[in-house]
């Protein structure tokens, strides 16, 4: 366990030294999400808001979108990061060195994800936090929910990011994954549109994404929206998803390494 933590810490430090405070991070993870947020907010303007599914006026809409975007940005930054990290490690030639060390691969995957998560999303999460306070979703009496929500997000998006890191071990250019993942994940997880209003087939698709459960739990805890399945089912769903993702990560990492040992050369790229 101690070794596991050491490796994770090392990966986090590496992440930080690699691209902390670059202009790229500020734009792609603060300014663009904020502009995108307002685009979606105004896209709701032509609609007559009734109390359907808990969105009754502009403020509840802001709270609804704020929670959705907060969770989505955490998950999305993982996709982006796994992509750029896999690229840099291949080009920089550090991927081979990493696979020569006896360090736990799982710890490396999670460390990579966690390091990126913390440094990339704090700004936008602050924005969403202010938004939730402005809409009085978070008040003094339920302030303790905020750290709980953040912890939930951090844990689940780290597991998600770890899995993506493992996926990107296989491919040299998996940028297509970014295009393909982005839209379905945003749509079906209910970031912008309540999942409960979807037809049956879309709700089944939405159960694949762990983000769905995260968003539902957060919205339930903050009294924005009730889940049709009940919160116990949501937590169970999230736990199952996390378990499956961890299993997939372990399986993929082993598989990728074996594959590289057999078919790869000393240099991957």
């Amino acid at each position: 366990m101690k070794k596991f933590l050491i490796v994770m810490k090392a990966e986090i430090t590496k992440q930080q030294q690699h691209d902390y405070h670059s202009a790229y991070v500020y734009f792609s993870l603060l300014i663009w999400p904020i502009l995108g947020f307002f685009e979606v907010y105004y896209a709701y303007k032509p609609f007559e808001l009734t109390d359907y599914m808990g969105i009754e006026d502009g403020k509840t809409l802001l709270a609804f979108l704020g929670t959705g975007f907060m969770a989505y940005t955490c998950f999305w930054s993982m996709v982006q990061n796994a992509w750029s990290m896999a690229n840099q490690e291949r080009r920089g030639g550090t991927l081979e060195i990493a696979s020569l060390t006896p360090a736990s691969r799982l710890a490396m995957s999670y460390g990579r994800a966690l390091g990126a998560l913390i440094q990339e999303v704090w700004m936008f999460v602050c924005f969403c936090g202010f938004l939730l306070m402005y809409t009085k979703t978070i008040r003094w009496d339920n302030l303790f929910l905020l750290p709980a929500v953040l912890l939930l997000l951090i844990i689940s998006s780290t597991v998600w990011g770890g899995m993506l890191n493992a996926v990107f071990l296989f491919s040299r250019d998996a940028s297509i994954v970014m295009d393909v993942f982005d839209m379905p994940m945003t749509l079906f997880s209910g970031t912008r549109v309540p999942v409960d209003s979807f037809p049956c087939w879309a709700r089944i698709v939405s159960m694949v994404f762990p983000l769905t459960y995260c968003i539902n739990i957060i919205r339930f805890a903050l009294h924005i929206q009730k889940s049709s399945r009940g919160w116990q089912a949501e937590i169970l769903g999230l736990l199952i998803c996390l378990g499956v993702m961890t299993a997939v990560t372990v399986f993929l990492i082993g598989r990728a390494e074996r594959h590289n040992r057999e078919t790869g050369e000393l240099q991957f790229y």
């Binding site: 979606v40 609609f47 007559e48 982005d182 839209m183 945003t186 912008r192 309540p194 979807f198 879309a202």
Partner: peptide, 22 residues
């Protein structure tokens, strides 16, 4: 995406209920 999102919002969520301003 820019079509699908409004489609879901318009058909499944809001059921075609637009406001008079629109």
């Amino acid at each position: 995406t820019q079509i699908i999102f409004p489609y879901f919002m318009y058909h499944y969520y809001i059921h075609g209920n637009l406001n008079s301003e629109f």
